[in-house]
Design a protein around this nucleic acid. Structure first.
Length: 271
DNA sequence: CATGACACCTGCTCGC
DNA sequence: TGCGAGCAGGTGTCAT
């Protein structure tokens, strides 16, 4: 579920709690979320290690351990992470790390669509190479975006394709395309230079504002401190079908024509 | 290579 | 009130 701003918020919240913490114990409550490893091997690799760095790549949280291994958490639809001072019973807890006097890190995931990976430096290199550029890094320019926008697929699909561009999901794709005044079904490769520039500005702008708002909570998303985000109150189109467009006043529409995902748009000013 | 269908899961909401 | 259908912000795989 969480997109870039949500995972960025979680990473920022967890960073002061986790950086330098030693992993004293590992509890895997739901083994099915561990991919390409077993609970026993996973626990063996983590126990006794220190967490050196807490970071984010695309929509994924990354814990770099002091031996260079990386624990990658993909929360997907309903995953959430937070640190608590003491253990609390939770039917949806999937993984718990005991951090001694630094408390407990809990990964909870109601639908259990999330994934946790343990990657060597070499496998991490392969992993990150498959993901597109980070839209909030300085190196992300309109030219970078233009490279992601090739082909005849819908521009909305293109910006949500994590190999082309990292971190944008359904909510922010809808918002960015509305901000840029671009029809989401337009072929990605057919945008003009000015439209690419507008979309670049919109993507960067909406992601920055959403990070400042600590993410969007529609249902399940919680920050790293267990609270809802605030950006849901500032969405211009997502979830607002039938309501007036904030630019032109026409009724916003909802379709599922692109990849069967909810697409919200203003039929008047996105055409 | 691009695209579409589907699978993975559970909970919530809506309509009857 | 109760029940089934449909829907949900993501990603990987497989067939075409």
């Amino acid at each position: 579920m969480p997109e870039l701003p949500e995972v960025e918020t979680i990473a920022r919240d967890l960073r002061p709690c986790l950086t330098g913490a030693r992993i004293a114990g590992v509890r895997v409550h739901r083994p099915d979320i561990l991919h390409q490893t077993t609970p026993a091997a996973f626990a063996r690799a983590l126990r006794g290690r220190r967490i050196a760095v807490v970071t984010r790549r695309a929509k994924h949280l990354v814990l770099v351990l002091d031996d260079g291994a990386r624990v990658v958490v993909q929360p997907r639809m309903t995953g959430s992470l937070c640190v608590t001072p003491t253990r609390i019973r939770d039917a949806y807890a999937v993984l718990e790390l005991d951090l001694g006097d630094r408390g407990h890190l809990v990964y909870r995931d109601v639908r259990r669509l999330g994934v946790i990976l343990l990657l060597t430096p070499r496998r991490w290199a392969t992993y990150t190479a498959r993901l597109g550029p980070e839209p909030l890094e300085r190196a992300f320019t309109p030219a970078t975006l233009a490279r992601a926008l090739s082909g005849r697929l819908a521009v909305k699909k293109a910006i949500m394709d994590q190999r082309r561009l990292a971190g944008v999901g359904n909510i922010y794709a809808n918002e960015a395309l509305w901000l840029a005044g671009i029809d989401p079904s337009r072929p990605a490769g057919g945008l003009g230079e000015d439209e690419v520039a507008a979309l670049h500005r919109s993507i960067v702008g909406v992601l920055r504002r959403a990070v400042r708002g600590r993410g969007t909570t529609i249902r399940d998303y919680r920050t790293g401190t267990g609270q809802p985000g605030t950006f849901q109150g500032r969405l211009a189109v997502y979830g607002r079908e039938g309501e007036p467009c904030l630019r032109c006043g026409h009724h916003l529409a909802l379709t599922h024509a692109i990849d069967q995902r909810a697409t919200y748009l203003c039929p008047w000013c996105q055409s």
